[in-house]
Design a protein around this nucleic acid. Sequence first.
DNA 1: TTGTACGCGTTATCAA
DNA 2: TTGATAACGCGTACAA
Lengths: 337, 337
Amino acid sequence: MVTIKDIAGQLGMSTTTVSNVIHGKTKEVSQATIDRVQEFLKQVDYVPNINARNLAQNKSKIIGFAMKARADKYSNLLMDPFVSELVGGVEEAVRNSGYFMMIYISSDINKIMRRASTWNVDGLLLFGMLNDDGIRVSEKYKNPIVCIDTYSIEGLKYFTNVGLEDEKGSYEMTGYLIQKGHRRIAFISDNQTGVDLARFNGYRRALNDAGIEFNDRDFIQIRPHEEEVEDSLSEICERLKDYSAVFCVSDLYAVMIMAALSDRGVKVPEDISVAGFDDNLMGRLHRPALTTVHQDVKQKGIVAATTLLDIIKGEAPVNRQIMLPTGLVIRDTVRAI
Amino acid sequence: MVTIKDIAGQLGMSTTTVSNVIHGKTKEVSQATIDRVQEFLKQVDYVPNINARNLAQNKSKIIGFAMKARADKYSNLLMDPFVSELVGGVEEAVRNSGYFMMIYISSDINKIMRRASTWNVDGLLLFGMLNDDGIRVSEKYKNPIVCIDTYSIEGLKYFTNVGLEDEKGSYEMTGYLIQKGHRRIAFISDNQTGVDLARFNGYRRALNDAGIEFNDRDFIQIRPHEEEVEDSLSEICERLKDYSAVFCVSDLYAVMIMAALSDRGVKVPEDISVAGFDDNLMGRLHRPALTTVHQDVKQKGIVAATTLLDIIKGEAPVNRQIMLPTGLVIRDTVRAI
DNA sequence: TTGTACGCGTTATCAA
DNA sequence: TTGATAACGCGTACAA
């Protein structure tokens, strides 16, 4: 490894001058030395040592992307297509800004905070935080934080959130189903917090506005864990016999349920209409193609990352609650009755 | 930020002692001071500065995961479900070993190498390298390297490769199709290098062993880029009329093609049989469920990472070419004729 | 058993 | 226009 000191030695000048040339602080250096140094840098293929630089500047050029792992449908968070698309968007934005991305996955908030401090990351992206997790982090960690998909009004005092018009999108889809003549509409998700709760609320509001009474059993919980998913799907298919339409909280669940229905000889949309949420590849490639609520997940990642980067640069965001839009995507799994 | 020096000062002892306690070099420290120090560490929630540590030790505890981006079917590599599952496996293994993972995506080998040096990563994982890319990297970068899915005999002198029995898996699937009575079998992929070439070779060998003549037009190239994918699929569906079965180089392509066929009123497997490769969620949830060749992508990531970590620890791998097994998954998209 | 002092590679301050 | 030199925080010979 060739260092600045080496170069200075071989060129018979001081490290200061070399460093200045490297950083383009060229106003106080003669053109002759600039050229000499630059040529030499090329020649030896000088690569700076980030650790030394970070130590000297007390910066890191690292964006930490921390995700709280849940006991989940995937054995690793990154296998969730939503998450990987999100990471893809973040990675791209971070890379294009000359920063680096470091991913942490942990179910332990404290570990996440320790890592962030250890690496002295310049900014933190938080995903999957529940309740006041985000607040706890921001109390300890003093650099900028941007959360993704976190529903915490309280938290907005501490950080910016990038979310989605979940409630609205869900309201519109439910309205569409109702408009198509459906009145017995089930809602399926695996929990009732955060994003899922917002979507559930949109569904309920639409029912209410149409004068349709909601009954507790219209919410069906799916248990997607490997050991019990088959049982869960059986139960769901059985309960779905009472409905003419089902609104799933994600495209993945919609596709899973359509497969289970198909296995039991139930036809979509002839026997039951199905709607999803996310508009991902699975739904697009399904036949019949899935009617769903669109969101641009990659864009969500990009917006979150660029917002964080802006804050790091000192530009406070106009809005602490950034809501990305949704849109109805009408395809073939919902029929009029 | 609280430093070792601070602690030493407040406790009225030297930084050496504090450092020794932190690192458990406890044989030369009295129990009394150990306790004092440890309690104080807890109290102030001491977090080491990785940059300083790395600089002093000339290590980084970072595993670099470098991927060469191609002009691809996805606007970001991480959106490829194969890649994200791979990353998931790597991330898990790296995290469990107390290391950190840093992802680089670039189409430029030189940028990748510069990053690896800049961060002084302890080991490098390489994915998506073509031809002698891997060799070029290993000539410049002196720490251990493990490649994933790289077909380069020459390269094995320089690094370990974690791959798959692509040829064998493909041979077996083609054999299965033949056994089911198919003789006009098309093969679809988007290129003919590396992994895709190996799978193509397995297909050809199986045809050959069964005395079936291969004609150049039996290889059909798919163009998955967004602008032209529809045209490409139209052409494929047209050409497929001459075949009773089609073997796709990936589950994704299989599902895409089945959707296109369905749109044109062609039924699978009644009108044409379809086989895939990968055994991912898309194929599993498709109806009819996809007959395919299984590989464990997450495991591939874990094996690659642990192998690299072992080499870093000084344990040379027994084999420089690690081939993970494949297996036939017979489901419902291939029928006997 | 504990402390001093130096090196790691870089940047920044200030003097020449 | 250039050069010494002191930080940055940590680890570690070596000395005490």
